[in-house]
């Protein structure tokens, strides 16, 4: 591990100031991903600014939205009575990810900024445009069973590993930021960038910007929701495919639908085209089949991950059937 300096921030302003004053600084949340990557020499920050003791409050704001401080642990969010009652898909997504120990440490902000688990990204002996821009990609023609089928580029086919992010994508969450130039808010769906020819630029965060909170509007009162994850073992594994869905059915007709996919792209993937197919259509298997086909219409398989396309379609259909 490359040497670094460490300092703990007591509030958002001092965290942002410390990062701005220290070249090569990175923010440290729980560290469950960053410390591992530093040990592998994949991440090599010159300084860590520990933000894990910044505000971690979880609750409904005066605006009616659910607010989660970025330092809230995954466990505290999943256990929160209001989250479990009114935003159950958030709790479901969290308990489908990682292990109890990791959820106790990992934070909301860190979860959204965790890096891909592409093995070529982790292997400093392999070529990876995300780790070393311009070096090439060994995954495109390598072992790419876990890789992306949507939104990928010839330069990068890595997936975003977050479960929480998929639920938040379906819920129209917003991400609140603080930085040297002040505060701003971005839609969660706009936080991550597709790889294009700059896969090392993963988010729209400016240098030194810090996630301070995530807020979520209340979902439609009559909507039912579910998070379904398919993986190679029953627990403690990343998604091959996951589906976050909210479905509101009135008199046999879909009144509203929200659909997001995980494990298929470099960002939590909102399937807006499928939602358009669903909305106003009869809540039947035939409609769900058409929506699933639309959701994956632009999918492009690599040599080993073609199975993800029918798998994602089947998980979409079965999840919608469960909710209707």
């Amino acid at each position: 591990m490359k040497p670094f300096t460490y300092q703990r921030a007591d509030d958002v302003a001092s965290a942002v100031a410390a990062a701005a004053a220290t070249p090569g600084a990175a923010y440290l949340g729980g560290g469950t991903n960053l410390v591992d990557l530093m040990r592998q020499n994949v991440e090599r920050p010159a300084a860590l600014v520990d933000v894990s003791r910044l505000p971690a409050r979880i609750g409904i704001g005066t605006d009616g939205r659910l607010w989660m401080g970025a330092a809230a642990t995954n466990t505290d969010v999943a256990a929160d009575p209001v989250v479990r009652r009114d935003f159950p898909i958030i709790a479901e997504a969290i308990v489908n990810g990682a292990s109890g120990q990791i959820r106790n440490t990992a934070t909301v902000g860190g979860n959204l900024l965790q890096r891909t688990r592409c093995l070529y990204f982790y292997d400093t002996g392999a070529r990876c445009n995300k780790r070393e821009p311009g070096s090439g990609c060994d995954a495109v023609d390598g072992h790419n069973r876990m890789h992306a089928v949507l939104g990928a580029s010839p330069e990068c086919v890595a997936t975003n590993p977050s479960d929480l992010g998929v639920a938040l994508a379906a819920l129209d969450a917003r991400v609140h930021l603080a930085g040297p130039a002040g505060g701003r808010t971005v839609e969660l769906l706009d936080l991550h960038r597709l790889p294009g020819d700059t896969p090392h630029v993963e988010t729209v965060l400016a240098p030194g910007e810090l996630i301070t909170a995530v807020s979520v509007p209340p979902p439609p009162a009559a909507a039912r929701s579910a998070y379904r994850k398919v993986r190679e073992r029953a627990s403690y594994a990343f998604a091959l495919v996951s589906v976050a869905a909210l479905l509101e059915v009135r008199d046999g007709v879909v009144a509203s639908a929200r659909l997001a996919l995980g494990g298929v792209a470099a960002k939590p993937w909102r399937a807006a085209v499928a939602e358009a197919v669903l909305t106003g259509a009869p809540a039947t298997r035939a409609t769900f089949d058409r929506a699933a086909a639309a959701a994956l219409a632009d999918a492009r398989p690599l040599a080993h991950n073609g199975f993800k396309i029918p798998l994602a379609q089947r998980v979409i259909v079965s999840t919608l059937e469960e909710l209707s």
Partner: peptide, 10 residues
């Protein structure tokens, strides 16, 4: 928690 992924300073 996992002591291997926690910095002692934390």
């Amino acid at each position: 928690v996992l002591a291997c992924l926690t910095l002692a300073a934390q």
